[in-house]
Structures are given as structure tokens and as C-alpha cells.
Design a protein around this nucleic acid. Sequence first.
DNA 1: TTGACAGGCAACCAATCAGTTACATATTAG
DNA 2: CTAATATGTAACTGATTGGTTGCCTGTCAA
Lengths: 105, 105
Amino acid sequence: MSEDAVFRALADASRRQLLDRLHERNGQTLGDLCRGLDMTRQAVAKHLAILEEANLVSWKRQGREKLHFINLVPINDIAERWINKFDRPRLRALSQLKQALEESD
Amino acid sequence: MSEDAVFRALADASRRQLLDRLHERNGQTLGDLCRGLDMTRQAVAKHLAILEEANLVSWKRQGREKLHFINLVPINDIAERWINKFDRPRLRALSQLKQALEESD
DNA sequence: TTGACAGGCAACCAATCAGTTACATATTAG
DNA sequence: CTAATATGTAACTGATTGGTTGCCTGTCAA
């Protein structure tokens, strides 16, 4: 929930990857999320717990399975409240210019 | 430079505070940045080194002083390349709606 | 030239972290 | 009911982290 928890949760590449995978396909089980990751199930569960702590992931029990869902609100909060603090307009203009240049290729 | 270095640099509240202070007033010396922080000069220097590593801060020697400057590019990169990945349009619309509602108070 | 000031460097320490192994519990399929 | 499956819990470990203290170097002012 706290800004600090979100930043800290995002600091780990494995956790960002988990968010990526949930964004790709929401509602995955712990088992699903383990697949292809070079890590034990318990390690993945710990990462998910940290993401839950930061309110970036929520879950729903379904029988013996636990379905995980990404929550985009904290990410957006940081985008709106923190990044915008740092002179965003000028940089957004730069970025749009860059995009325009790329599109004109 | 790497996305990972940026996320990890931003994970610490003291470092985010240092960025805040540099954004408020750019070109501060190590001594300036220490003022008011409950930390030794060496600790602050370490934080600044991590911010430099992530390319979030650069510096210029001036006599015996070291002037520090914030670099907004990596923050903007994350905003553009990473946050936008997560369904930004819908959330931006929500945020603007919220802002409109707040302004109508 | 000498002392004070600004910063650099390195060793050390406690706490946190990312990951493991081992075992326990709960649910579903047969 | 029982075995397999899905997840939970907990103790432990090595590495990293955030911070310290102590000392060294470089620069400026009197």
C-alpha cells in the first residue's frame, strides 16, 4: 500500500517478471507462475507475498488452487504522484518528439 | 543505465529523498546533501554512488567540492517503457476523471 | 605554510534478502 | 479411502545492504 513497499517490491527483477507474466495472463496459480522460472515454488511464493504486501497482486482461493491477479493501481499511483513530480511535461514532450521521429521512418 | 539498476536505486527511501532534494535545488555538494539527513557523510556518499551507477545522478568537480546533478532521463525511460506496458491508457483516463472530479469541488 | 574544510577509501557490523531444504496441510481424482 | 496434487510453514544459509568508525588525500584561506 505504501509507496515505499511498492518501490521495494519493484526492485527485484524476478518480481517484475512475475508482474509481467500476470499482466500477460491474469489469474494464474502459484504452479503456473513457477513454470519456467529457475527457482523453487517456495521462493516464488515469497516473491508473491512481497507483491501482495505492496498491493500489486491479489488472489482468490479456488479449491486447492490460489489464483493470482495483478493490481495496476499502485503502479499508476507512482506514475501519477511520483514521476510527475520530476518535470514530466518537458520529458513527455521529448518522448513524443522521439516517437514522432520514429514513426516518420 | 540498466533498468534493474534504476529500480534498485529507487528502492531506498533515502535515495529517493536525495533525488527530491536535487530536484528542488540542483548542483548541491555532498556536504549540502548531508545537511538535515540523519546519516553520516559516508553513508550519503554511498547512496549517491548507487544513484550514479543507475545514471540518476551525475557530478562535476569544482575545486575541493563535488557538485551533484539529477538526471531525469532514466526516470522518464521507466515511465515510458515500463509503466506504459501496463495498460496505461485506461488508468490515465481514470486518473484524469479523478482529477476532474477533484477540481470540480 | 599550516590548519581547516571537503571529500575518498576501507574495514567492519547488524539486519535484511533471496533462496534453499524439509516437512505439514488441504483438496481433488480414482 | 487413498494417492497425487497444490499450497503453507519454518528453519537455515550465504550474499547483499545500509550504516558505522577510522584514517587518508586534496584544496583553500589566513
